[in-house]
């Protein structure tokens, strides 16, 4: 990790603006494949990329766009990939939900909930066998931790002492069903603790604090050669209300899951929500709203230049 605060802030903004461009292309019907946008995930994605060591590996989910953009600066290879062109970042062979980028450390991505956890444990144990100095970081959501493969993977990682970070993005939603609609609460801290795995909770979308916490976690994993679990509170932004009708006089609330978000417009106003759920709003409080806007304008100009 060798980034100053300004570079880090610029990364968060870049991920937001680049996703806004993808969203516009999506609205225009330029993609045949499903893409799960990650508005609201930018701070965590930037933090993960910032702390990854040279040999570390990242294992992702179907909602991988922010992490993938975080590991590759240019947007065009992603637009090409989503358009299934050979010039895409993965040669147009993977699309979005399984997008990998091994040369940037993204070894494996799964669209099947929890499928990625055991694969990541295996690769993490590869570090142990080869006595290499790296860790595996595996992302999953609050839906994925309901799957048996999550429990099996944490148990396996703890049992064989695999150097792995389980990074659980808790956005409370599994497609269009909230946690309280589908299950009882899972106390991940207790679950991890019962298996002897350290647990850390993060929230607030402060990218600088996230970087510090993740760097500490990485160091802990490398020292102990054992797994660690971080649960991060995120809100996937981009919700909207359907047209008003007699049944829903205010319009029916639609939680963003996949596809284009009609509520997000490409503009220099990159803040989508004026609270801590939006990493860009938090960034504005940390470095000034004017700086965020200025950098957003610069990023937009950069993308336009790249596209020409």
């Amino acid at each position: 990790m060798n980034m100053d605060k300004r570079s880090i802030a610029r990364e968060v903004i870049r991920l937001r603006v680049q996703q806004m461009v993808v969203n516009e292309w999506y609205k225009a019907g330029r993609f045949k494949i499903p893409i799960h946008l990650g508005f609201g995930h930018e701070a965590l994605a930037v933090a993960v990329s910032a702390v990854m060591g040279r040999g570390d590996w990242l294992f992702l989910t179907h909602r991988n766009i922010a992490y993938n953009l975080g590991r590759e600066k240019s947007l065009k290879p992603f637009l090409d990939e989503y358009s299934l062109k050979p010039t895409g970042v993965a040669g147009g062979r993977f699309g979005s939900m399984n997008l990998i980028h091994p040369s940037r450390g993204i070894l494996y991505t799964s669209s099947i909930l929890a499928n990625q956890f055991p694969v990541a444990v295996g690769s993490a144990f590869g570090f142990t066998v080869s006595d290499a100095n790296g860790i595996a970081i595996v992302c999953g959501g609050d839906g994925a931790i309901e799957e048996g493969a999550f429990y099996e993977s944490v148990l396996m990682a703890a049992s064989i002492k695999a150097p792995i970070l389980f990074l659980i993005e808790n956005n409370e939603w599994s497609m269009h069903t909230s946690i309280r609609e589908r299950r009882v609460d899972i106390d991940l801290k207790k679950l991890a603790s019962s298996l002897g795995v350290l647990y850390v909770s993060l929230k607030g979308n402060n990218v600088f604090a996230y970087i510090q916490a993740l760097a500490r976690a990485r160091k802990q994993i490398l020292t102990s050669r054992a797994p660690l679990c971080i649960e991060v509170k995120v809100n996937t932004l981009g919700d909207w209300y359907d047209m008003k009708n007699p049944l829903y006089p205010q319009g029916k609330f639609v939680k963003y899951h996949t596809g284009a978000s009609p509520s997000v417009m490409l503009s220099e106003e990159v803040v989508l929500q004026k609270n801590a759920d939006d990493p860009l709003f938090v960034l504005g409080k940390l470095i000034s709203e004017a700086s965020v806007k200025k950098m957003a304008v610069q990023e937009l100009a950069h993308i336009r230049k790249e596209m020409i």
Partner: peptide, 17 residues
């Protein structure tokens, strides 16, 4: 944990082990 053990094997092979 058979399913996870197959994933574990794939993960090892992905890492070159």
């Amino acid at each position: 944990a058979e399913n996870s053990l197959v994933g574990f094997g794939f993960g090892l092979a992905l890492s070159g082990t």
